[in-house]
Computed example of a mutant assay.
Amino acid sequence: MKWMYVLFALAAGAMMPVQAGINLRLRGSLGDPVWAAAVSFGVGTLALLGYLLVSRTPMPTLGMAASAPSWAWTGGALGAFFVFATIILAGKIGATSMMAWLLAGQLIAALALDHFGVVGYQVHTVSWPRVFGICLLVAGAVLVNKY
Rank of each mutant, 00 (worst) to 15 (best):
A36V: 03
A9G: 06
G117I: 00
A85D: 04
T125Q: 07
L113H: 05
L103W: 10
M15R: 01
P60M: 12
A36N: 05
P69R: 03
W35M: 11
L7A: 13
A109R: 06
A38P: 07
L48E: 06
S29T: 12
L26M: 15
R25F: 01
V118W: 15
A47V: 11
M4T: 04
S29K: 14
W35A: 09
M98P: 00
A12C: 05
A109D: 00
G50Y: 15
V83Q: 01
H115A: 14
M15A: 13
K146N: 12
M16W: 07
A11K: 07
A110T: 07
A72V: 04
K92R: 15
A104N: 11
A65M: 14
G117W: 01
L53K: 14
A11Y: 13
V138D: 04
D114I: 01
G91Y: 14
F116S: 00
A14H: 12
A14V: 06
K92S: 05
G42I: 03
V18Q: 06
A9C: 06
M15V: 08
V18M: 12
A47L: 13
H115R: 01
G120A: 02
W71F: 03
A141D: 02
A36C: 06
A11D: 07
M16T: 11
Y121S: 11
V39E: 07
S97D: 10
A37Y: 02
M99T: 09
P33I: 08
G44L: 14
V6I: 12
A77S: 09
Y121H: 12
G28W: 13
R130Y: 03
K146D: 11
T86H: 04
G117A: 02
A104Q: 12
V123K: 06
L48S: 08
A90C: 00
Q106L: 15
P60V: 10
M16C: 05
V83H: 02
M64V: 08
V131F: 12
A47M: 06
V126R: 03
G28T: 05
Q19K: 00
L48Y: 06
Q122A: 05
H124R: 09
R25Q: 02
L103V: 15
A139D: 05
D32G: 10
Y5S: 05
C135D: 03
G120L: 00
W128R: 14
M98S: 07
A9N: 06
T125C: 02
F82H: 00
I88H: 10
Q122C: 02
Y51L: 14
T96W: 08
G50E: 15
V83K: 00
M4I: 01
V6P: 04
W128M: 15
A104V: 04
W101N: 02
I22E: 04
L136V: 15
W128E: 03
G63Q: 14
G44P: 03
A112W: 10
A100F: 13
P60F: 10
G117R: 01
V83W: 00
R27H: 13
Y121M: 09
G63D: 13
I93E: 03
M59N: 09
S40W: 08
G94L: 01
L103K: 02
T74L: 13
A11V: 12
T96S: 10
Q106E: 07
T96Q: 11
P17W: 01
Q122F: 00
T57F: 07
G42V: 01
Q106D: 05
A104R: 11
W101C: 04
L111F: 11
